[in-house]
Design a protein around this nucleic acid. Structure first.
Lengths: 341, 341
DNA sequence: CTGAAAGCGCTTACAG
DNA sequence: CTGAAAGCGCTTACAG
């Protein structure tokens, strides 16, 4: 059916081995035969069967990407396309393809990962997120399979190559920015507390409070879990607190946008009554009213670096693990202002 | 190194052929040997090498997805994650994996597609977009490789299975909605004119005008090409036309959001001075001020249906081509109002 | 019900 | 510089 190395060999009057060698541009093959063989390939429209090659060379030239559960709202935000753009760019440079998980639950994803790994579908894996007690990370580590994570591994970080923002630092910085604007009552609206970036950001948030002598108030910390399915009530609840916060650190621009709309229903003006700084710097943030002050976490670069690391890891197994920090920076716009006296 | 069918056979005291058969749960193998073999697999942690299997059964159980050029802004909007969610869901049901193109130009993507097809990496392909003169579609058609497109193929539609919204109809409908609100000067802000959905929407737009006796004005049609890199000038230009439109049909919520912000800089109020209906119904649309009236094109369902069709096509090659229409509907919010007399 | 053999399409020592 | 042979890990007629 499909044209194989044998057909090409026959047409060019050489053995299959020789065809294979010109495919690899082996230096010891004469230019003459190379020409002949290439002509034959051209004529027959030959293209190597990658499966067959993979089977013998034991390398697939593809990387697997583990996405968050496809049911998560996470996927709604532009993180995914953007990180993929970074990964693609870098993978393509090395002629690597991309294979995706599709699972809707951690268990399903784990099964897919096992199949990718054991089924020899990929040479390495990029984990797009880092959460606590992640079975997938455990599995990969245990099987010594090359992988890189975007985000800080909660355990075994010293044995894992990862790229991340310095979430503690940047969150401390933005919190201090709010403090310098005179805010004392600042709430933290986190994402899922199983996500390590949430843990790190909360840490930075607390550090800023502490170093500035502001007491930490438990009721001013809200997590995603409390938000899902009753976002509106929960957010409204905060806004109605008798000692309502004057500023918010919000894990995601989308939540910030939602929250702003609720605030305005309650006649709370942004930023006069409530300052907000969020994360991710979505492209429409600058067109909002008020425009959103947000942390640009450089998603594209996270993807690029993670891929570079993974490809390194595949090429030189057993090299030392690396830790890459991608700079995040606050983009100041108009959703924050000095607290009213 | 890795454990193979041979190792399992040895441990279970059967031939590799038998192991292979219990893998396939062949009915003629006795329960007793099945048990024995499965035990051995368990003990050794055996997992089949999918590459090897693919090589002989000539099926990869994976589908390839061709994305728009990764450089396009298209990727910024939630179309991509959402369609992928639909594809994943459906693919997973049939145990199919997903392989992605990464190319940054049509030429690169074509090369990748050729490699996917000839390299036997995938059993079928989903094209995530439809544009005029698409080399990739031509290639696939010519090679009789199973594929499905999301969007209407510009050529050869009768020979291609595709899923699409009825873009002509829905755009006609929303245009009539604006006309019924009393608007006569309506502008159309399209995406790239090479995209077939833009062509179709423009057609629906014109139909609505014609049937309502409104003259078609060329200067009220703007394409993406004119927008890229100088979006602001171009949009502002429209807003400054001496006979400024009172309503807009905009190809994408993101553009609408951007446009709204420029309008307000010019003290044009939405919707009082300018009504807007856009496409895609992004999740934050309802939190905008004003909230966005937008067409929900049901991206998720487009992904699901495209995958179903493709899997059918893979299972029953040479079946008749299908055309699936996924309903789109306008979600009415507050960005449109009756034209001022 | 099970095994031996051939074969999927390639690569790569080994030999000359 | 090139070919014959073995092998990657599986599946599947063919035979018994």
């Amino acid at each position: 059916m499909a044209v194989t190395i044998k057909d090409v060999g026959k047409l060019a009057n050489v053995s299959p081995s020789t065809v294979s060698r010109v495919l690899a541009n082996h230096p010891k093959i004469s230019d003459e035969t190379k020409r002949k063989v290439r002509e034959a390939m051209e004529e027959l429209g030959y293209h190597p069967n990658l499966q067959a090659r993979s089977l013998v060379v034991k390398s697939t030239k593809t990387i697997g990407i583990v996405m968050p559960h496809s049911t998560e709202r996470v996927l709604e935000n532009p993180f995914f396309p953007e990180v993929l753009r970074g990964i693609s760019l870098e993978a393509r440079k090395s002629q690597f393809g991309i294979y995706l998980t599709t699972g809707a639950s951690e268990e399903e994803i784990l099964q897919e990962v096992i199949e990718m790994v054991q089924g020899k579908r990929v040479d390495g894996i990029i984990l797009l997120y880092s959460k606590t007690n992640d079975k997938i990370m455990d599995y990969l580590l245990q099987n010594k399979f090359p992988f890189t994570v975007i985000g800080r591994p909660y355990q075994n970080a010293e044995r894992i190559t990862f790229v991340d923002n310095d979430n503690v630092f940047i969150t401390k910085q933005i919190t201090e920015y709010l403090i310098q604007l005179g805010h004392q009552k600042i709430a933290f609206i986190g994402a899922n507390m199983e996500m390590v970036f949430t843990i790190d950001r909360l840490k930075g948030f607390k550090q800023a409070l502490k170093e500035n002598g502001i007491a930490y108030q438990k009721e001013l910390i809200i997590y995603d879990k409390e938000l899902v399915d009753r976002t509106k009530e929960k957010l409204t609840e905060i806004l109605n607190l008798e000692s309502r916060p004057t500023a918010l650190v919000v894990s995601d621009d989308f939540i910030a946008i939602e929250l702003i709309s609720y605030a305005e229903e309650l006649s709370i003006s942004i930023p006069e009554d409530l300052s907000i700084v969020a994360f991710n710097n979505i492209s429409t943030g600058k067109y909002m009213k008020p425009s959103l002050t947000s942390v640009d976490i450089n998603i594209f670069q996270l993807g690029v670096e993670a891929t570079k690391c993974l490809l390194d890891d595949i090429t030189y197994p057993n090299a030392v693990t690396k830790r890459i920090t991608v700079p995040a920076k606050m983009v100041e716009r108009n959703s924050c202002c000095r607290v009213a006296e």
